[in-house]
Design a protein around this nucleic acid. Structure first.
Lengths: 171, 171
DNA sequence: CATGATGACTTGAATGTTCAAGTCAGACGG
DNA sequence: CCGTCTGACTTGAACATTCAAGTCATCATG
């Protein structure tokens, strides 16, 4: 980037060629892989990626139900977005809501029978695609390495401490 | 997932434990890493991830200008989204538009001086974060492996179109 | 040239996401 | 009990993205 070495003259750290290549490629993957999976899900089941995983998580649960806030954590989304989303899925009869009988502050999202059948119909196609685009593309060795890499980066991202990387001044 | 082995009985292929762990972790990374970078950019420069890279690509170009359609390819986005986005950046005086003098059908997006200065201000903080969360988290060896993995998956995703299950060869 | 075809955007409406309040149930202190 | 507080959503408005037309310059053809 012209901005990197350019106007700041002796600018701050930048990325080396190899690092930049890895980062660029990874950024591209970040966008294209979900897009490819979404397009399959959208075409075959009119579901977005996150909708699919919300339904899948519910189907996994005893009673096919879960508290909204727990589901939000699992689906890695904010409660507000989840609430709107469940509202839309409710209109399609895939999910319904009930207050938790044990504690009325909580709401349970419940996968309906319709929703379960719908998911069962959609799952194989999606799984095929994950296998095809991701799992089968890599050797078991590479998969293990990737898992380790993922964990390391996630640990950094979720590191409790924030801080603008130490003493470097960011005006 | 209950849906995987459940209602379909002898269902189609599913993911093994290791595969599933790798996929889950990767999906999580797909979401949290961009979110972490966006939150820094948003806080420090009121820019989204993609807006940042649009400005960065422009700054890289001779004349700091590029045709909309080329920029759309580089930024991996649709023209319509780019057009709306450039419209918003235009209101902030970071970018302006001109018809290409060589061919009036084309539009050039041009980084203004204001935009260039703005980007120069925002870049170090963003780069720091990429280094911190991504590059520095991995060994050079891991970075190379990741790069290879990325290329393999991207090749699958961008594969023209097949569906024929005959070829097991990845080459 | 006039006419239609094509390509490269631009635009407006529909849809989805984010942000800032608002609501409501239960916990807590007096 | 009563009032206040807290947590867990829900809601509506603002904002962004997607989708389906619409516009406009240039090209091809008769």
């Amino acid at each position: 980037m012209s901005v990197s070495g350019g106007p700041n003259g002796s600018g701050p750290r930048w990325l080396s060629g190899e690092q930049l290549a890895a980062w660029r490629g990874f950024m591209k993957l970040l966008h294209t892989l979900p897009a490819a999976l979404e397009s399959q899900l959208q075409r075959d089941a009119k579901l977005s990626f996150i909708e699919y995983y919300v339904l899948a998580h519910l189907s996994d649960q005893p009673g096919r139900r879960m508290r909204m806030s727990e589901l939000a954590v699992l689906a890695d989304t904010e409660l507000s977005r989840l609430s709107h989303m469940i509202g839309r899925l409710e209109k399609r009869d895939l999910v319904r809501r009930e207050p938790d009988p044990r504690n009325g502050r909580y709401t349970q999202a419940i996968l309906t029978d319709t929703g379960f059948a719908y998911l069962a119909e959609a799952a194989p196609g999606h799984v095929d695609r994950v296998l095809d685009l991701f799992v089968d593309a890599l050797t078991p060795e590479e998969l293990r390495t990737l898992n380790r890499i993922t964990d390391k980066v996630l640990a950094r991202v979720e590191r409790p401490q924030d801080g603008g990387s130490g003493t470097a001044v960011v005006r």
